[in-house]
């Protein structure tokens, strides 16, 4: 008896010392750090290609091109942390933009038309949410289905033509507040708000628990379904706002707005160190990844790299980033 007790006492500190890691390692070896280092490297490489990259105004201006996708990617990050995924918001952006443009073309006043767009976003999130939560279908396949469905509806509404939006509505990307284009400002504010909610509220911590261990979350009395539904609604609304912002930036609406945008959204989340199997990740990571991606893609344009090559680079980046993230998480303790 006493022998076993002794050996247990002797073994316990050993186990602990084997698993405990220096605090600086826990703090530093994180996927966000990888993103940050990559961002710095990208900036150095890009500024050696063209001095424009040292001009903050130029970078901000380039960022307006992907600010809409980046906004949705923030919510997508939370979604993936909660253990679900949504591939449909890029199509959702197109559908919301089309319903908005169609409504205002039909003579509905602009504020009401914006309301129509927002309602569309809400409806899209609701449909996804009902299919995934009420009918318990896997979100991956459901949102592939709705990805095609929403894009198809946008095509039905807009046809093959583009719908003009009124002159004064155009150009949200050229409106500057404190020298920052409005879409970038919206993105930054959204990042701060979502980052705060995710890291410092009960709601946010519950999201992590749902993604880490759904059964434990249920035993802890967390209403996982309600939280997931709120996330689906949130991503629907964000997609509709992003869609209308795209409409304002482009000046006209076509059904193929943000076509293939789901790749960039997932890529931003993955590059930012979101764990694809849920439970880990941060808004900060996605925030940094969005800037990284903008610098990489703008850099490729400046370096005169073929658009096709850029497609390859995005695809390869996606695969590498999820391999790297998985590797880092497998090395660090949970």
């Amino acid at each position: 008896m006493s022998v076993t007790e002794k050996s247990e006492i002797a073994a316990a500190p050993q186990r602990e010392s084997a698993s405990a890691r220096p605090r600086w390692q826990v703090m530093l070896i994180r996927p966000e750090l990888m993103t940050f280092v990559l961002l710095i490297i990208a900036l150095i490489v890009a500024s050696s290609l063209s001095p424009y990259f040292l001009d903050i105004a130029y970078i901000l201006d380039s960022f307006t091109l992907s600010a809409e996708l980046a906004m949705v990617a923030l919510v997508l990050t939370i979604m993936i942390i909660a253990g679900e995924i949504d591939l449909s918001p890029a199509s959702g952006m197109a559908l919301a933009a089309c319903t908005f443009a169609y409504a205002q073309q039909a003579g509905v006043p602009i504020p009401l038309a914006v309301g129509v767009g927002l309602l569309t976003g809400l409806a899209m999130g609701l449909l996804n949410g009902i299919l995934v939560i009420r009918f318990q279908l896997p979100s991956i396949i459901v949102t592939i289905g709705t990805l095609i469905f929403y894009r198809g509806l946008a095509q039905v509404i807009a046809g093959d033509q583009s719908i003009r939006v009124p002159e004064w509505f155009i150009g949200i990307n050229r409106v500057l507040v404190f020298g920052i284009p409005v879409p970038v400002l919206v993105f930054v504010i959204l990042s701060v708000v979502l980052g705060f909610v995710l890291s410092s509220t009960i709601y946010g911590r519950q999201i992590y628990l749902i993604g880490t261990n759904p059964i434990a979350a249920r035993h802890a009395g967390i209403r996982a379904n309600r939280i997931k539904m709120s996330l689906f609604l949130l991503i629907g609304i964000t997609a509709s706002i992003a869609g209308m912002m795209t409409a304002s930036r482009l000046g006209s609406v076509r059904y193929d707005i943000a076509l293939g945008g789901e790749l960039q959204m997932v890529l931003m989340a993955m590059l930012g160190g979101t764990y694809i199997f849920g439970g880990r990740g941060s808004i900060l990571g996605t925030f940094l990844a969005a800037w990284l991606l903008v610098i990489v893609s703008t850099g490729m344009i400046v370096a005169n790299i073929l658009p096709a090559m850029q497609l390859c680079v995005l695809g390869v980046l996606l695969i590498i980033s999820i391999i790297a993230t998985n590797f880092i998480y497998s090395r660090t303790q949970r």
């Binding site: 995924i85 591939l87 991956i140 293939g260 789901e262 790749l263 997932v266 993955m270 694809i276 199997f277 073929l306 658009p307 096709a308 090559m309 850029q310 497609l311 390859c312 680079v313 995005l314 695809g315 390869v316 996606l318 695969i319 999820i322 391999i323 998985n326």
Partner: peptide, 19 residues
């Protein structure tokens, strides 16, 4: 890795290579 993410990546990679 989950097949969906990998093949979403290669979907774009292979298309780019085709170009």
């Amino acid at each position: 890795l989950p097949a969906i993410i990998v093949t979403l990546g290669t979907l774009n990679l292979y298309r780019g290579l085709t170009y």
